[in-house]
Amino acid sequence: ELELEEVDLYRMNSQDKLGLTVCYRTDDEDDIGIYISEIDPNSIAAKDGRIREGDRIIQINGIEVQNREEAVALLTSEENKNFSLLIARP
């Protein structure tokens, strides 16, 4: 049973970094989820404190993420200042 949490992050300008590194968990081929492998200690996500390494990203801004490229594109989008992440953890 996964616990879901919605985390809203806000950046003042497009130079601010959310600070999330995303990856696949390669140990299970059936698991195509996108996971947070690293959080930059000086980033918006780290200061917010709710997202943890190992969390799975389900949605970004209401869009279900299917692959790492999509997640990276959404997280690094210059147009977005508000990010709503739906994350899951066991």
Rank of each mutant, 00 (worst) to 15 (best):
R25C: 15
G19C: 00
E53F: 06
V22Q: 02
I87K: 02
P41H: 12
G49D: 13
S43G: 04
Y24I: 14
N13T: 07
L9D: 01
G62Y: 03
E5C: 09
N13S: 15
Q59Y: 03
N13I: 07
L18D: 02
E53C: 06
G33F: 15
L85R: 00
I60V: 08
T76W: 07
G62I: 00
E38Y: 06
D55K: 00
I51W: 01
D48I: 03
E70T: 05
Y24G: 10
A73G: 09
Q66H: 14
D31L: 13
L74H: 12
L74D: 04
L4Y: 11
E1N: 15
D16L: 09
D16V: 14
E69C: 14
I39M: 11
N13F: 07
I60R: 01
I32V: 15
G49W: 02
S77A: 08
R52V: 07
D27M: 15
P41R: 11
N80W: 15
N42F: 07
L2G: 15
E6I: 04
D40N: 13
G54F: 03
I39W: 00
G49T: 11
E79N: 12
N42R: 14
D48Q: 04
R11M: 06
R52S: 09
P41T: 13
I87G: 01
D31S: 15
E38A: 08
Q15E: 10
L85G: 01
R50A: 02
R68T: 13
N13E: 13
I44L: 11
M12K: 11
S43C: 05
Q15N: 10
S14C: 11
Q66N: 14
A88M: 03
E6K: 13
G19Y: 00
K47P: 02
G49N: 09
R25Q: 06
E3M: 13
R89H: 14
R11F: 02
I60F: 03
S43Q: 05
G19W: 00
Y24P: 08
A71V: 08
I58Y: 11
Q15M: 11
E5K: 12
R52E: 15
T26K: 11
I58D: 07
G62T: 05
T76Q: 06
M12F: 08
V65F: 14
Q59D: 09
Q59A: 12
E53R: 05
Y24A: 11
D28P: 11
L74N: 13
I34K: 00
E79H: 08
N67S: 10
Q59K: 15
G62V: 00
N13L: 05
K17E: 06
Y10E: 15
D8R: 14
Y10C: 12
L2I: 09
S84M: 05
Q15S: 10
L74I: 04
L2A: 08
Q15P: 09
R11W: 02
N67P: 03
N61W: 01
Q15T: 05
T21D: 02
C23L: 12
L86H: 13
R56V: 06
V22W: 12
D16M: 09
N61C: 06
D55M: 06
S14E: 07
S37H: 08
S43F: 04
A46K: 13
K17C: 13
K17F: 09
S43T: 04
S14R: 13
L9R: 00
A46L: 02
E78D: 15
E3D: 12
I58W: 04
G62E: 08
A71Y: 05
E79G: 07
T76P: 01
V65P: 11
N61S: 03
T76L: 08
G19P: 01
N13R: 08
F83Q: 03
F83L: 07
D27Q: 11
V7L: 09
A71F: 05
S84T: 07
K17M: 10
K17R: 08
A45H: 01
E1I: 12
A71I: 03
E1A: 03
D48A: 08
L74K: 04
Q59T: 12
P41W: 08
L9Y: 03
L20A: 01
D31W: 04
A73W: 04
V72H: 12
G49L: 04
D27S: 11
G49Q: 05
R52F: 09
Y10D: 14
T26I: 07
G33Q: 11
D40M: 14
D8F: 03
D28T: 09
D30P: 15
E5R: 07
Q59P: 00
S77L: 08
G33C: 15
I87S: 02
K17Y: 12
N67A: 07
R68V: 08
Y10L: 15
R56T: 11
E64V: 05
M12T: 13
L85C: 03
G33R: 03
R52L: 12
G19D: 01
A73L: 10
S77I: 07
S37K: 10
S43W: 03
E69R: 07
G33E: 14
I34P: 07
M12E: 06
K81W: 09
L2S: 14
R89Q: 05
E70Q: 14
I63G: 05
A46M: 10
K47H: 09
T21Y: 13
D48L: 02
I51L: 07
E79C: 09
R50G: 04
S14M: 14
E79D: 13
S14I: 06
S43V: 01
I51F: 12
I51T: 05
E78M: 07
Q59L: 04
L20M: 14
L86S: 14
E5F: 13
I60W: 01
S84F: 06
Y35V: 13
A88S: 14
G62M: 03
A88Q: 13
S84W: 04
N42I: 04
A73P: 05
A46C: 05
L9A: 01
A71P: 03
I87W: 00
N67E: 12
Y24Q: 13
V72Q: 13
S43M: 04
R56F: 13
G49F: 02
A45C: 06
D31F: 14
E5Q: 07
M12V: 12
K17W: 12
L74C: 04
D8Q: 02
D30W: 03
I32N: 02
E53H: 06
S14L: 09
R56W: 06
I36K: 01
E5N: 14
V22E: 02
S84H: 13
L4W: 06
S84Q: 14
E78A: 10
V22P: 10
G62F: 02
D16I: 05
P41I: 14
E1C: 03
Q15K: 12
D27C: 05
R52A: 12
G62P: 00
R56N: 11
